[in-house]
């Protein structure tokens, strides 16, 4: 690495006959410039770009984990002031201050409120999903995680009258957490009716809720027609499980408000 010599540079550019004030100002400027040059030269080389040389696709490395109970995880290297690498679209609740990123190619915004964001599967016919996810907050003084789940279930039952707790074990949620904060989970099943009341599709709702400080959060994912691709494999291959996995990215990225 080339290294600047501040002594030579300073001496060569020193002015000769000037007023003391001007001389001081010129010297000060020169000192600053030389110091900056020296610092620049002594600084480590710029890190190589994450993106490899053509023809490789540009890497977009992963987003950071949620920072709810300790930003950044277990440990971090000191002395690195670089910002977190994040990908996706950021959303934050203007009412409660929580935030997360979502993939705009995976989800379209269906409803955007101060306390709630609803995302739905895109209308891309190739996607062939009709699922949605609701991320909602409430004051922990008024809603516990269980109460927030029950409130969501009550709301859902208006459109899915036969909604009931899933008695099967296949889709149970182990280790529920939101933004690294442990929570609770529940799974409900029912039948979605057409406008004329004709049952058209089985529907399943998986809900994870957690609380920290003054905030309780519930994340509800709705999946339709869990058996739609059963012919191609075991139930693990259903769109239902796929959508749940996509929502895991939101659970991981979720950031609780500071304090």
């Amino acid at each position: 690495m080339a290294r600047a010599d501040p002594q030579g540079g300073f001496a060569a550019q020193r002015p000769r006959s000037r007023s003391p004030l001007l001389r001081f100002a010129v010297i000060f400027v020169i000192v600053i410039v030389v110091v900056l040059l020296a610092v620049s030269a002594l600084a480590p080389a710029a890190p190589p770009a994450s993106c490899p040389a053509a023809p490789a696709p540009c890497s977009v490395p992963p987003k950071p984990p949620g920072s709810g109970s300790g930003a950044g995880g277990g440990s971090s290297q000191s002395g690195n002031a670089a910002a977190e690498l994040v990908v996706g679209t950021a959303w934050s609740s203007s009412q409660f201050g929580f935030s997360f990123h979502y993939d705009p190619q995976t989800w379209d915004v269906a409803e955007d409120d101060p306390d709630l964001l609803q995302l739905k599967s895109p209308s891309d016919p190739d996607a062939d999903r009709e699922d949605w996810v609701i991320v909602e907050g409430a004051s922990s003084s008024s809603e516990t995680p269980d109460q927030l789940i029950q409130a969501r279930v009550a709301s859902l039952q208006q459109s899915v009258p036969d909604l009931a707790a899933d008695s099967g074990s296949y889709y149970q949620v182990k280790g529920p957490e939101i933004g690294d904060v442990p929570g609770i989970a529940a799974v409900y099943v029912g039948t979605l009716d057409d406008t004329d009341g004709t049952p058209v599709a089985p529907v399943r709702y998986s809900i994870v809720a957690a609380t920290q400080g003054n905030l309780t959060v519930a994340i509800t994912v709705r999946t339709l027609d869990p058996d739609s691709i059963a012919d191609h494999g075991p139930p693990a291959l259903t769109w239902h499980m796929l959508s749940r996995q996509l929502v895991d990215a939101i659970l991981e990225d979720f950031r609780w408000p500071a304090g």
Binding site: K63, P65, A71, L85, E252
Partner: peptide, 12 residues
């Protein structure tokens, strides 16, 4: 998770 320059930020 990593910083924008690729350096280590944290793990869970």
């Amino acid at each position: 998770s990593i910083h924008q320059d690729g350096s280590y930020l944290g793990e869970v």
